[in-house]
Design a protein around this nucleic acid. Structure first.
Length: 490
RNA sequence: GCGACAGUCGUCCAGUUUGGUCUAGGACAUCAGAUUGCCAAUCUGGUAACCCGGGUUCAAAUCCCGGCUGUCGCACCA
């Protein structure tokens, strides 16, 4: 069984995630639920993001609407660019990307933004027919990956946002003014985005409705090399690939000097991201920042790095890091007719800020964390262990009476009550002690407290470590401090 | 979206070829009880499924049609 299949099975069996609407036969693909176990991991990953990125850098966090007006996406370019020209064979019904098919046939690139009637003209003049059945093609249509929704009784046109950052851009002027913003300023948002994928696949890896944690750094483009906190991260290790094959491992400083990184601002934020991911338990030796070539980049990006992780299903893009320049603010300024320029107080100049973004896929990150944490212990009956960091584990500690007699359950309940409001705990008194340890390990619980006869004599318990199976005896009065210490990430 | 293959308890699998004691069986998991008492022990008992809709037939898990989902390939992937 592949690692992907093992994670999938664990997810279904233990309530990490499962298909949406699964009791109905018409449940559409690409929609998944987080169950109780998975939600806890997700919430803790978000806590870590807030701690290690948002608060660390003094960013402002907002929570915006998922439905936004048509104008927003005219300005962002999504109405025009987030769309593929599609042709359908009239005989066999096969559909093709029109631009791809034509460039294949005539050996010349044609832009995907070519108007439909011009595409039709080329198809006719070149006599292009269906590659599978030689049938004739119908006229070119457009498939837009945004979900269109209708607002109110008059059915005003609107869309579910295809990326959370558009909310940040349209909220920027008010947030900047009311929060006394100064460039460079990070604005962060966690929320859902929606894309009508043609072929969603592989559970959390390609969803139609998914979580993004995005930060948009608004900056003065003439000051990309003066950053207040730069030195704090200048010795971070970064693994950078410019060709998608080889990886250069450098410190942030070295990357800047050697020209792998364009400026301090980009270097700093890639470093804060790398530092964050090193705390998730993902094996950093199996990660890379892949620099994207011109034809790979999104339509708004001038510099782009993908943060990728190697998994059993190949390299997986977890974070898109794009230098979007003033593309978005300029677009929104033009369409809304609002002036979105701000004063940079350091020299009183009036500028339209540029933007560098870290656009993180939460769902994919959770998958990658699970896969990199998954471990079968061949030394001990192939026990399945999720070696999650304590601050990401769905449950921090299990509380287990060794037996149910002699007042041990009662004592365990008392200890449980003392801990359960501060920590995620799990009380379990059914079955053999070994079986209970194994159940906890499978969902990544790092500690198990066992209450035995000695507990009744001296008020001490054993605390078992998930990864080593070692136990140490500690006083009940010291448990809270012990558990608190385990939650520190740095 | 196209093509191939597939869909049975929470999970994995048997049963489908050749329709009929299938009133759907097993293993693991789970629950209750007994027993043991620090690493998935044992015994007893229980819960629990034929993806959805239609058709053929005296009779459908089994055959046919449609839909949905999954896997793989093609295409797509801000």
């Amino acid at each position: 069984m592949s690692n992907y299949d093992q994670i999938m099975k664990l997810a279904l069996e233990k309530g990490f995630y499962f298909p949406s609407c699964e009791i109905y036969a018409d449940a559409p693909a690409g929609f998944w639920e987080y169950g109780p176990t998975g939600l806890k991991v997700k919430n803790k990953l978000i806590d870590l993001w807030r701690r290690e990125i948002v608060r660390r850098d003094g960013m402002l966090e907002i929570d915006g609407s998922q439905i936004m007006s048509r104008s927003v996406f005219e300005a962002s370019g999504h109405i025009e660019n987030f769309t593929d020209p599609v042709i359908k064979c009239t005989e066999c019904g096969s559909t093709f990307r029109a631009d791809r098919l034509i460039s294949e046939r005539i050996g010349k690139d044609i832009p995907e933004r070519t108007p439909n009637d011009e595409i039709d003209a080329i198809i006719n003049s070149e006599g292009i027919r269906c590659p599978s059945c030689k049938g004739k093609f119908g006229i070119t249509t457009r498939f837009n990956m945004m979900f269109r929704v209708e607002i109110g009784p008059s059915a005003e046109e609107a869309y579910l946002r295809p990326e959370t950052c558009q909310t940040i851009f349209v909220d920027f002027p008010r947030v900047y003014k009311t929060m006394r913003g100064k460039l460079p300023l990070g604005i962060a948002q966690l929320g859902k985005s929606f894309r009508n994928e043609i072929a969603p696949r592989q559970s959390l890896l390609r969803l139609r409705e998914f979580y993004q944690a995005e930060v948009e750094i608004f900056c003065n483009p003439s000051k990309l090399d003066s950053l207040p906190f730069f030195d704090e991260l200048s010795n971070t290790t970064l693994r950078i690939s410019t060709d998608g094959l080889s990886v250069e491992e450098v410190t942030t400083n070295e990357g800047l000097k050697g020209g792998l990184l364009p400026n301090k601002l980009v270097a700093y934020y890639l470093s804060i991201l790398a530092d964050f991911y090193s705390k998730t338990g993902i094996d950093m030796k199996r990660t890379r920042f892949r620099k994207l070539g011109e034809n790979e980049r999104a339509f708004y990006a001038s510099i782009a790095f993908d943060f990728e992780v190697e998994t059993s299903v190949g390299w997986l893009e977890l974070v898109a890091c794009n230098y979007r320049s003033d593309y978005d603010l300029r677009g929104h300024s033009t369409v809304s007719k609002q002036n979105l320029e701000v004063i940079d107080p350091s020299d009183q100049s009036k500028i339209l800020p540029h933007v560098f973004e870290l656009s993180m896929g939460i769902d994919r990150s959770i998958y990658a964390i699970l896969e990199h944490s998954f471990y079968e212990d061949s030394e001990h009956d192939d026990r399945v262990v999720l070696r999650l960091k304590p601050y990401l584990a769905p449950v921090l500690v299990g509380i287990l009476p060794l037996v149910n007699r002699n007042g041990l359950s009662e004592k365990s309940q008392i200890i449980h009550s003392e801990l359960k409001r501060e920590f995620d705990t799990y009380y379990d008194d059914s079955g053999s002690i070994g079986r209970r340890y194994r159940r906890l390990e499978q969902i990544g619980v790092p500690f198990a407290i066992t209450v035995d006869k000695i507990t009744l004599q001296d008020d001490s318990v054993t605390v078992r470590q998930r990864d080593t199976m070692q136990q140490e005896r500690i006083k009940v009065s010291g448990l809270k401090e012990y558990l608190r210490r385990s939650l520190q990430s740095s």
